[in-house]
């Protein structure tokens, strides 16, 4: 197990290195960054000054090295537009995004796993079709529309929940549902398939032959074996939620990372974008790593190796 964890860690570090190179080289993908920064009315002298100031003339590996060395110390440079250290911007916004993503995942799990189990217990029954319908809806409804409808119902009509902002946990209910509902269908379907496989296995037949209560068979013997792939998927989904909350954050005026990324991209403001990509992919790698370790722990044949 220890060797396994070390191996995974090394792999994660490798992935991070590649991602950092990619996100660094992004700055050159949209043309000469000096021209962008200097603005439309800049003279050649201005552009040269900018180039000198940001050291765009240095060889690319030197620039990357300097950027990486700073990044490792938590210094991601300054936003060209906001004139503030990117590190501060991110630490400001990140908790909001993390809270939103976490709540959304909680909602998705709480909906998907029971629905998937219920569907697997009685395949092709009314329950199965109903859970299919609920989950297909989640995939079919565009987030911006679904979010607006929630606002219309719960904020405008019923006046139960605030439509925007981040003042209290109540503000996060609708955004979390909007973001989480989209992730539900895949997880529900996977829970269902995985449970169906497990319920048809020999050891479940053994459990029946032992005279165990159906609930014990379902939740102890079956779910424990069926949940591993769902855990992996959830980790990947959480990564998507953290990075892909741009739309939801805009609808509900939540100033998280997604919102910052969207703003910075539209302003050609690269340092924040680079830093956000790096942070999110780091999170993504960390989540996948956790899922792998959790899966390994769930499966005794890996855990005990």
């Amino acid at each position: 197990m220890t060797r396994y964890v070390i191996g995974r860690l090394a792999l994660a570090a490798g992935v991070m290195l590649v991602v950092s190179m990619l996100s660094f080289s992004m700055i050159y993908m949209a043309g000469d960054p000096a021209i962008t920064i200097a603005g439309e009315s800049a003279t050649d002298a201005d552009i040269n000054a900018v180039r000198k100031f940001y050291r765009f003339d240095d060889p690319i590996y030197a620039q990357y090295g300097a950027w990486m060395a700073n990044a490792l110390r938590g210094d991601f440079g300054r936003s060209y537009y906001l004139r503030a250290p990117v590190g501060e911007l991110i630490t400001d916004r990140f908790p909001t995004t993390l809270l939103l993503g976490g709540l959304a995942m909680l909602f998705a799990m709480a909906l998907a796993v029971p629905l998937g189990v219920a569907a697997a217990v009685k395949p092709n029954s009314l329950v199965d079709r109903l859970s299919l319908m609920i989950s297909v809806l989640g995939q079919a409804l565009p987030g911006f529309w679904f979010g607006l409808m929630l606002i219309l119902l719960f904020s405008v009509k019923l006046r139960w929940l605030p439509p925007s902002g981040t003042e209290s946990l109540k503000n996060f209910i609708m955004p979390a549902i909007t973001l989480g509902y989209y992730a539900t269908p895949a997880m529900m379907r996977l829970t269902r398939t995985s449970m169906l496989d497990v319920l048809a296995s020999d050891y479940i037949r053994t459990a029946h032959a032992k005279g165990l209560h159906p609930a014990v068979i379902l939740f102890k013997h079956a779910l424990r074996n069926a949940i591993a792939p769902v855990v992996s998927l959830a980790a990947v989904q959480l990564g998507f939620m953290l990075g892909g909350s741009v739309v939801v954050e805009s609808i509900f005026s939540i100033h998280g990372l997604g919102h910052l990324a969207w703003e910075s991209i539209s302003r050609n403001d690269f340092p924040p974008v680079q830093a956000i990509i790096l942070t999110l992919s780091m999170l993504y790698v960390a989540l996948t790593f956790c899922a792998d370790v959790l899966n390994a722990w769930l499966d005794p044949s890996i855990r005990l190796e």
């Binding site: 020999d202 050891y203 037949r205 424990r224 074996n225 769930l298 499966d299 044949s301």
Partner: peptide
Amino acid sequence: FQEPMTALNPS
């Protein structure tokens, strides 16, 4: 049962 390899819960 016939198949002892799969008759016990692996977890």
